[in-house]
């Protein structure tokens, strides 16, 4: 089975203080440390687990980004992904979720994928639109918020997280599966994995390789525009309850007001 996991390099959420450029209204990516999206680490871990369980399968990491995104793909390779593809092209700068999905889908179509794993959303942009876009462009089903995945013949069966439990859903293959955050613990790259990552194939693809015109993507082809950015409202001061003997009662009432009791 040919499995793909879509990954993204993002500003390190553990160290970087996210800044927005007021002119471009985009996240500042220069001068900050960039890492493989921590959410993708869990998704990769889920994909590796399934690849090993299904057997006789290949797992490929697929990413779109600048040349520096190679580092993120190396991390995926060190974690145990078999090979990686990085789609990189100057014309891709400024791509929106629509273009990103279009480009990733073109590469997936070219490669021929049975199963495509995505995180529910990225840790920087949080649009959550790319997985659905990929499924749409490829004309295949999308299974979302998976916390458990099994493959039976040509079917994928997932447990889908919902507010009060889970649904069991099945679909035909090929399919896109998004992983519910917190469902899979990220594995560490092994030392052997790190030492062997360079020996694995990392292919670079350009827009020309995918037969996509530069005008369809990037700034030029963007369907969305960020109109404005603004500061989040400062939180109002909390309510302090002084214990005059009725504090318990007041706290209970407060919680009831928000239907927490």
């Amino acid at each position: 089975m040919k499995m793909f996991v879509c990954i993204k390099q993002v500003p390190d959420p553990n160290t970087a203080i996210s800044k927005l450029d007021p002119a471009t209204k985009r996240l500042v990516r220069s001068g900050v440390s960039l890492v493989l999206d921590p959410g993708d680490e869990s998704t990769i871990s889920a994909a590796i687990k399934l690849r090993d369980k299904v057997g006789n399968s290949e797992l490929v990491a697929l990413s779109m980004g600048p040349a520096s995104a190679q580092e993120a793909t190396r991390r995926a390779l060190a974690m145990g992904v078999d090979r990686a593809i990085l789609i990189t092209d100057p014309a891709l700068a400024g791509s929106d979720a629509f273009s990103t999905a279009q480009v990733l889908a073109a590469a997936l179509k070219k490669e021929g994928a049975d199963l495509i794993f995505c995180s529910t959303e990225s840790t920087d942009g949080y649009t959550g639109m790319v997985p659905g876009g990929i499924a749409e462009f490829l004309g295949i089903p999308q299974l979302t918020f998976a916390r458990e995945i099994t493959i039976e013949g040509q079917k994928a069966i997932i447990k889908r997280v919902i507010p009060k439990g889970y649904q069991t859903i099945e679909s035909t293959l090929p399919a896109v599966i998004t992983i519910a955050s917190g469902s899979y613990e990220a594995i560490y790259p092994t030392m052997k994995g790190i030492m062997g990552a360079k020996k694995k194939t990392l292919t670079q693809m350009s827009l020309a390789d995918l037969g996509i015109a530069a005008t369809q993507v990037g700034e030029a082809g963007a369907h969305e525009r960020v109109l404005s950015i603004g500061k989040a409202e400062a939180r109002a001061a909390g309510q302090i309850i002084k214990d005059d003997g009725n504090a318990a009662q007041q706290i209970a009432e407060f919680l009831q007001r928000y239907q927490l009791l």
């Binding site: 560490y188 092994t190 030392m191 052997k192 790190i194 030492m195």
Partner: peptide, 26 residues
């Protein structure tokens, strides 16, 4: 399991095949 107890030894002996500085960094 992560290979941290055999960092500077060749893979043929079960190590990770890392160099001595990598071992010290670890």
């Amino acid at each position: 399991e992560l290979g941290l107890l055999g960092l500077p030894f060749p893979e043929e002996y079960g190590g990770a095949g890392a160099d001595f500085l990598s071992y010290c960094l670890a």
